[in-house]
Design a protein around this nucleic acid. Sequence first.
DNA 1: CTGTTTTGACCGTCTGG
DNA 2: CCAGACGGTCAAAACAG
Length: 368
Amino acid sequence: MQDGGGGGGGGDGNSMHLLLSILADGEEQARRLLGELPPADDEGQLLGQGPAAECCRGVAEQLLCTFRKAIAVAKAIEAAGGDSPRSANEGGAGMAGRDAAQAQERQGQGVCKRRKGLPRWTEKFRIPDDANLEYTPDDGFSWRKYGQKDILGAKFPRGYYRCTYRNAQGCAATRQVQRSDADLAVFDVTYQGAHTCLQAQRRAAAPPPPPDVQRSPPALQDPDMQLLENFRNGLKVETDGLPPPPPCFHGDGTTAFSFAYAAAGAAGYSPAESGGQRLLQGGGCFAPATFSSPAATTSAGPGYFVHCTRGAHESPELAEVVSAATASDRAGFDYSMYLHQHDLDAHLPFPFDPMFGHPSSHGQHGDA
DNA sequence: CTGTTTTGACCGTCTGG
DNA sequence: CCAGACGGTCAAAACAG
């Protein structure tokens, strides 16, 4: 009814400046925090410090990176005039236009579809084979269902969820869950908006477990956690036949990703906490990641994958940002052009993120 | 009693004529 | 510009803990 078109758009200039100001403060605080921590040696080990300090440094670095990304996004939105055109819908199963050909054509042309609004991106979840039909993807966040709708061309209805803390904390994050027609074990989950609630902050604050711990989680005693773990164990990376993304490799061969902190500006999502099973199709890596993704390290086998179908394509200007980011491929995207006041480290790995998508996925919907 | 889910209705957006 | 189609959201009722 009074949903005002389903999204607030970019907001006015004053609020955007306020947002930028707040983000700049946060970045400065993160920088100071990082400065307070002892330096790390070549292998990333803190000199004379234990794992706890190591964790703190990693979190601080990622926090800093997150603020920088958020600033970049905010500036991009501001540059776009805060008024985005029709938001592009998620692709794939979610797009049920008058006919599939039209839908494909629209996607191929990058034509905007519906609803203005927050950045959105699609992920795919694969549930365990032994899960029942009512099983729904659990990303660790608390969602409240507010609607369900049959989608034209889809065998299964789409569920609409919003953050449980929408009213209490004004969290605007929403997600749409739809079971794949092709594979009953696969869910297309479209996220929209960032978690601004406390659960996102808790996740962001929680230090990620060491990679080996992630790969070999301790015995789970909580049935819910067992269920979640079962789900996690069934994750995989989908490449859709596309060339493999340029992930951030650690020296030890593990693939680092920091979707958690990319998503802090997008969904407040932490792979470390929800299993680290999400893998950006583009291998998002924004920070000197201190943890590795089991999904990224084990791309074989059943599992879970992410489609970053779209991100900040909310406006032509923003689309340019995306294009610039994506066209540069491995060279990464020069966000410094959007960070006039905040220098970015040249070595900062920041090629892709769920807000901006990956070259492959971007091209899939934009330049195909 | 409180919070969540279900479900029909309404509204905004998109597209073709 | 208009009308139809569709996706997304609202809100009341039902349900669950």
